[in-house]
Design a binder for these strands. Structure first.
Length: 689
DNA sequence: GGTAACTGGGTTTTT
DNA sequence: CCCAGTTACC
């Protein structure tokens, strides 16, 4: 490492710049410094797991600032809100960035929304458009499905959620339905025509009701950037664009990046194609691999020095890391020693749960907090058995990934009621609010919303006609709700409106849910959280794009004295690290998931997922291989030897581990004869006495 | 005709 | 545990 201080003393009239650089680049290694202070563009930083990618990106923004760039003209794009928040807060804290102007940053979707919101009319959207989440998309497609021959008792038809998957895959890969269905949903090939028609109707419906889905946010931003008039203005807002996790961009996002920086000047992409795990939603690491072709002047800087994990963990990581031509990377350790990852063979899932608990408690006995340990699973239900065992032993845990707070029925009811106020044309929201009332099902809900004439101004003014369309026994409750919603719409202030909307549906909620009091308490917290937003629209968009993981999330950060084990899906664990990581279910069908085995691409992604999981561990990694799973009789006899339990643990991977045999299976009780015959004979003596 | 209550089969990952 | 399909009730 060169010494920036010495350079400073001998540098004459460039002293200021060098001093500044030394402050900004001081704590970086050679590779990181080269990336952070790369003078030209376009730049690809190929950053292996745990190599200080975030610090490097933060340093690069500081360095750009030091070169005289206005921070307000630097755009930072990420995939998660968490990543955006973390980076922006570290940028603010970095030296030289105390200025009032701040670096712009956020997720692709959030930035797209910001652009669209400011120029809604230019996008021919009503000013109070609604951003609908994937759950709403599914609800809407479920209604449309009936009109397009996609409900049948004769043949198995794709369900609404599958239709939504296909739709979003088409948009995000920019491939026609037939291709997407053939490649990813082969059992739906005979429905391609119906699906295509339904998608056309779906798009028309969104446009007619002021609805914008997640995919639309990206499409609209891309369209604006490609527009002859708007494009240059939007492009001209930024001098530098930095994209995090570039391996996770989809076709639309890759277009957006190219449109933002057509010649690559000022473009920095950071990513690692071995960590691409979002193919199922249209992301493709091919976009990262093609960057050289997109930008002929591209410089690739590799970050390979790992600051996170012990060498023994990295040895396994390097064995399983998939390499792609021209972008090879091998992690080198900066920390010392450590134990080899343990490969724990377990007889069954219950044994696996006991083994995990035993190791978690042992680590705690040796002074490690529970929160220093994580269990990472491929799919949310893989921790079901473990959760029972943890509860039985009184080990507190928090689970990330899987069901989110905003997917709970009562939360969706409330959000729908809020949306009715912000965008009265939002008929999916109306549908949900109406159906909340006892006696109103799909047919009456349709009739009532027809009576409201949602696409015309002020539907609530026609609420008397709407009540008349309801069945007699529902009229009183419906009239009360509609009156209160109409009043709520007139209020000023986010907090007041949210509280009034909650009061409006209080009655129907209590009638619907047995545990209504607890649910309403949840919603109360939601109104408190929404109150700090400038408008209901903003609160709703934020909730859609970054839904709280649980109701407790809304109550602020957990208390510091609370200690709990973390259970997380591997997807949600991306970018995080723990001293101890437990990785259960390493058996074909679970890791890799049997859902992904149909295509070679799917299997490749599973391998990258495994790589992401392994590289989360700082000190100790435990791999668990249950030899048989409950409903899932995969275990072949040869798996009882340390052969291939999962296809990801080949000979080289196993050699990097320390094999352990867990508690042996329960003994088989020898049978001396048919026991029922014995007791039956004994019982028989009772009847003959 | 329309809704609610019941039952049986199936479950990846998420901005 | 959630959703689709079926049946029973208004």
């Amino acid at each position: 490492m060169s010494s920036p201080q010495q350079t400073t003393l001998s540098a004459g009239d460039v002293t200021f710049v060098v001093v500044f650089e030394s402050a900004v680049l001081d704590n970086l290694d050679e590779e990181q410094r080269r990336a952070a202070a790369w003078p030209g563009g376009p730049l690809l930083v190929l950053a292996g797991a745990g190599t200080g990618k975030t610090s490097t990106l933060v340093a690069r923004t500081s360095w750009l600032r030091g070169q005289g760039m206005d921070p307000g003209r630097i755009l930072l794009l990420t995939f998660t809100r968490r990543a955006a928040d973390e980076m922006l807060s570290r940028i603010t804290a970095a030296p030289g960035l105390a200025s009032a102007t701040r670096v712009r940053g956020g997720t692709f979707h959030a930035i797209a929304h910001r652009v669209i919101r400011q120029h809604a009319e230019a996008f021919s959207l009503p000013p109070r458009f609604t951003v609908i989440d994937p759950g709403d998309v599914t609800d809407l497609l479920d209604v449309l499905r009936g009109n397009h021959g996609l409900i049948s008792t004769e043949r198995r038809t794709p369900r609404a959620a599958v239709c939504a998957d296909i739709y979003t895959r088409c948009v995000n890969t920019q491939l026609p339905v037939t291709d997407v269905v053939r490649a990813g949903f082969p059992w739906c090939t005979s429905f391609s025509v119906q699906l295509a028609e339904m998608f056309r109707a779906y798009v028309a419906h969104k446009r007619g009701h002021g609805l914008v889905d997640f995919d639309d946010l990206l499409l609209l931003w891309r369209a604006a950037l490609a527009d002859g008039a708007a494009g240059p203005v939007l492009r001209g807002m930024f001098d530098a664009v930095l994209v995090d996790e570039y391996q996770d961009v989809n076709a639309v996002q890759a277009d957006i990046v190219r449109l933002l920086r057509p010649d690559g000047a000022g473009l920095t992409c950071v990513g690692d194609d071995a960590q691409a795990i979002y193919g199922f939603r249209g992301a493709d690491p091919g976009h990262l691999r093609r960057l050289r072709a997109d930008f002929p002047g591209l410089t690739v800087v590799r970050l390979s020095r790992n600051y996170r994990s012990r060498p023994n963990v990295l040895r396994l990581a390097n064995v399983i890391r998939p390499q792609s031509p021209g972008l090879e990377l091998e992690l080198t350790a900066s920390r010392t020693s450590g134990q080899r990852p343990a490969l724990v063979r377990c007889y069954d899932e219950a044994t696996q749960a006991r083994e995990i608990c035993a190791r978690v408690l042992a680590a705690r006995e040796s002074g490690m907090d529970l929160r220093d340990q994580a269990v990472l699973v491929r799919s949310a239900h893989h921790s079901d058995v473990l959760e029972v065992e943890l509860s039985a032993r009184g080990i507190p845990y928090v689970k990330y990934g899987g069901l989110r707070f905003t997917e709970a029925a009562h939360v969706r009811d409330f959000l729908a009621a809020l949306r009715v106020i912000t965008n009265p044309a939002d008929d999916i929201a109306w549908f949900r609010v109406l159906r909340l009332h006892d006696g109103i099902g799909p047919v009456h809900a349709r009739r009532i919303s027809d009576a409201l004439r949602l696409t015309e101004p002020a539907p609530l003014a026609r609420r008397n006609e709407a009540v008349a369309a309801a069945p007699a026994r529902s009229r009183e409750a419906l009239a009360a709700t509609l009156d209160r919603l109409a009043d709520a719409a007139l209020l000023a202030g986010t907090a007041e409106q949210a509280a009034a909307v909650l009061a409006a549906i209080d009655g129907p909620l209590r009638a619907r849910y047995a545990d209504a009091a607890a649910r309403i308490a949840d919603l109360q917290r939601l109104t408190d959280a929404a109150a700090s937003r400038p408008s209901l629209h903003d609160a709703l968009v934020e909730l859609a794009l970054d839904p709280p993981v649980s109701a407790s999330d809304l109550a602020g950060p957990p208390r510091l004295d609370e200690d709990y084990l973390v259970i997380s899906t591997i997807h949600s664990a991306k970018g995080l690290e723990w001293p101890v990581v437990h990785l259960p279910h390493l058996i074909d069908g679970a890791v890799p998931s049997d859902m992904a085995l149909a295509t070679p691409d799917g299997l490749d992604e599973e391998r990258r997922l495994f790589y992401v999981a392994v590289t989360r561990a700082r000190d100790q990694l435990y791999l668990y291989a249950p030899l048989r799973l409950h409903h899932h009789r995969l275990a072949r006899d040869d798996r009882h030897s340390l052969g291939q339990i999962t296809r990801f643990l080949d000979a080289a991977a196993i050699a990097a581990c320390h094999p352990i045999d867990a508690t042996p299976p329960p003994p088989v009780i020898p049978r001396s004869g048919p026991l029922t015959a014995q007791i039956d004979a004994a019982l028989d003596t009772l009847w003959s006495g």
